[in-house]
Amino acid sequence: MSKFQINEKSIQALTQIAQDAGDKILDIYSSDIAIYDKSDSSPLTEADLAAHHHIVDALGALADLPILSEESSEIPWQERKKWTRYWLVDPLDGTKEFIKKNGEFTVNIALIEYGEPTFGIVHAPVLKKTYVGAKKRGAYVLQEGQKIAIKARPHTQGQAWRVVGSRSHQSPEINKVMDALDGEKDLIAMGSSLKLCLVAAGEAHLYPRVGLTSEWDTAAAHAIALAAGAKVTVLDTNNPFDADAHPLRYNQKESVLNPFFMVSC
Results as ranks from 00 to 15, higher is better:
residue 2 S to P: 05
residue 7 N to A: 05
residue 7 N to P: 06
residue 11 I to L: 11
residue 13 A to F: 00
residue 16 Q to Y: 01
residue 19 Q to R: 14
residue 34 A to H: 10
residue 35 I to F: 07
residue 40 D to H: 10
residue 42 S to T: 09
residue 54 H to L: 15
residue 55 I to L: 10
residue 62 L to S: 11
residue 71 E to S: 07
residue 73 S to G: 05
residue 75 I to G: 05
residue 78 Q to L: 11
residue 81 K to R: 15
residue 82 K to H: 14
residue 84 T to A: 08
residue 86 Y to D: 03
residue 86 Y to S: 04
residue 90 D to G: 06
residue 102 N to P: 02
residue 104 E to P: 01
residue 106 T to H: 02
residue 107 V to I: 15
residue 109 I to M: 05
residue 115 G to E: 09
residue 118 T to M: 06
residue 129 K to S: 10
residue 132 V to C: 12
residue 132 V to K: 04
residue 135 K to S: 12
residue 143 Q to D: 02
residue 144 E to T: 10
residue 148 I to T: 15
residue 148 I to R: 14
residue 150 I to T: 07
residue 153 R to K: 15
residue 154 P to R: 13
residue 155 H to R: 13
residue 158 G to S: 07
residue 161 W to S: 08
residue 162 R to C: 01
residue 167 R to P: 00
residue 173 E to I: 00
residue 175 N to H: 03
residue 179 D to L: 12
residue 180 A to E: 11
residue 182 D to Q: 14
residue 184 E to V: 07
residue 186 D to C: 01
residue 188 I to W: 06
residue 191 G to L: 11
residue 195 K to M: 13
residue 217 D to S: 04
residue 221 A to D: 05
residue 226 L to C: 02
residue 229 G to P: 03
residue 235 L to F: 10
residue 238 N to D: 15
residue 239 N to G: 03
residue 239 N to M: 05
residue 244 D to N: 15
residue 246 H to W: 00
residue 250 Y to R: 02
residue 260 F to N: 15
residue 265 C to P: 13
